[in-house]
């Protein structure tokens, strides 16, 4: 999969690149509006990450340009401006998602995968790992082709792990992604633990081969 990052902040660009390359993505970068335009004009990408505030122009114009070209690249806006109107404007212009800085890399991976999957529509949009299968559109979970019932939050947690398998997920990242604004207090990290405990039990009881394991008490990893 080919991904283009248009971001003027060198350090952030490098970090994202490093993280994505580890996932075996082919990553290209652009540091401003003009070089971004060049890259877009030259190649097709599976996903384009674009910052709004760029030297020589706005990332929103790039998004508009892509829409005018009727391109099928998935577009995710990454911005330091967590302003509602920017978000609405970006999504109206044809962006697939909007991620406010700072974000967790795991969250970025999840968003990229979701955006690409939604964009592809190739019929087979199931996410599979080991003997677990998720149909995101229907929010259904199968283990060995047997449907299992999870509550809403359990499903969200499992989805997050399925989209980030074998990756260390920080507790805070997971809490923010699944429970959003509703958790940001100290004891919530134990709260995440108790939620995961329930999910693990359900997976185990239904004969899943994969397991969610705690890593040094800092996060979890599904293996």
């Amino acid at each position: 999969m080919k991904i283009l990052i248009i971001e003027d902040e060198t350090n952030l660009r490098d970090t994202i690149t490093q993280s994505l390359e580890k996932e075996k993505y082919i990553v290209e970068t652009a540091h401003d509006y003009i070089s971004g335009m060049d890259k877009i004009g030259g190649y097709d990408y599976d996903c384009i990450l674009v910052d709004i505030m760029l030297p020589n122009g706005s990332g929103l114009s790039l998004v508009k340009e892509l829409k005018d070209m009727k391109r099928r690249d998935a577009v995710i806006i990454i911005s330091a401006k967590d302003a509602v109107d920017d978000k609405v404007k970006g999504l109206d212009l044809g962006a697939d998602d909007y991620l406010a800085k700072p974000f967790h890399l795991a969250e970025l991976h999840a968003r990229i995968k979701s955006a690409v999957r939604r964009k592809s529509h190739n019929g087979n949009n199931a996410i599979e790992w080991s003997n677990i299968k998720i149909l995101p559109e229907q929010r259904e979970v199968f283990i060995n082709e047997n449907s299992i019932t999870l509550n809403r939050k359990e499903y969200d947690v499992l989805y997050y792990f399925m989209i980030n398998p074998n990756r260390l997920i920080n507790k805070t990242a997971l809490a923010e992604s699944v429970w959003g604004d509703y958790t940001d207090q100290a004891d919530n990290l134990d709260f995440v633990y108790s939620q995961i405990k329930n999910l693990r039990k359900k997976l185990k009881d239904n004969g899943a081969d994969a397991d969610i394991q705690s890593v040094y008490g800092i996060g979890y990893k599904m293996t």
């Binding site: 970090t15 330091a80 401006k81 700072p102 967790h104 890399l105 920080n170 800092i218 996060g219």
Partner: peptide, 22 residues
């Protein structure tokens, strides 16, 4: 607050990368 977002993002993401390297 806006200006702080980017350096915070970089620091957090770099730490995340380090943690991921097993």
């Amino acid at each position: 607050s806006h200006e702080l977002q980017t350096p915070l993002a970089i620091s957090l993401n770099k730490l995340e990368l380090i943690l991921e390297n097993n």
